[in-house]
Simulated scan of single mutants.
Amino acid sequence: MIKPVAIASLAYLLPATVFAFGVSHHGGIILDCTPPIFFDESPAKETSVPALQKFSFVASENTDRDTIKVWVNNEPVAVTISEQRSGRLAVEGVLSQPITDGRAWIKVTGYSNDGCDQLHVWNVYSGSHP
């Protein structure tokens, strides 16, 4: 036999599971959203370059430009964002010091206009590497 305390506990937890939802970076409730997409990386994923100083990529038209953040090897990098005719965002970054040897790990985060977040990463190699 189920004890009354167990029944009360289940009754208390049930609404939380039935009505679970997320909260966007704007503070609104997210019931359904589409995450942004980051693509057309330059230099391309897993490629080799003599030195990495500049990089770029494109963000889908549903990306909230104010939420795009970029790191290279876990160091934040300021980027320039311009809107293309299609509504997509062209994102360009320039490193203060070029990476001339080893792996550069480029990490991008951002939110869509309706509140979904996305993480995108890729590696670029420079100089001599295995």
Rank of each mutant, 00 (worst) to 15 (best):
P76R: 08
L13D: 09
D32S: 14
G102D: 12
K69I: 11
A78L: 11
N73Q: 03
P15N: 07
A78V: 09
V72H: 06
V72M: 09
R88T: 15
H120K: 12
L52F: 01
V121E: 15
F55H: 07
A20Q: 13
T47I: 04
S24V: 04
W122G: 07
I2E: 14
A11Y: 01
L119M: 10
K69P: 11
P4V: 05
W71E: 15
L52H: 04
L89F: 03
N62L: 02
E83A: 14
F39P: 02
V108Q: 03
I29G: 02
I81F: 03
V77K: 01
V5Q: 13
S112D: 09
T67R: 08
S42Y: 06
L119Q: 14
R103Y: 00
S112K: 05
P130C: 00
G87H: 07
T34D: 10
N123V: 00
D64A: 14
G102H: 06
K54I: 01
P43A: 02
L52C: 04
T80E: 15
F19L: 14
V124A: 01
N73W: 07
S48V: 11
D32Y: 04
R85P: 14
A16I: 06
P130M: 00
F55Q: 05
A78Q: 13
V79G: 08
S60D: 11
K54E: 13
F39E: 10
V94P: 07
E83P: 09
V18Q: 10
R65E: 15
I37Y: 04
K54A: 06
N123A: 08
V5L: 09
K54N: 15
A20N: 14
R103S: 12
L13W: 14
V5E: 15
G22P: 09
D117V: 02
Q53I: 05
N73R: 04
I106C: 07
Q84T: 11
I99T: 12
L13A: 13
G93S: 08
L10C: 08
S126E: 00
V70T: 15
D117H: 11
P98G: 05
S128I: 01
P36Y: 02
A11N: 08
W71H: 13
D66S: 15
Y12T: 13
E41F: 11
N113R: 12
I2K: 12
Q84V: 05
G93R: 08
G115P: 12
P76E: 04
V77Q: 02
Q97G: 02
H26V: 03
F38S: 02
V94K: 14
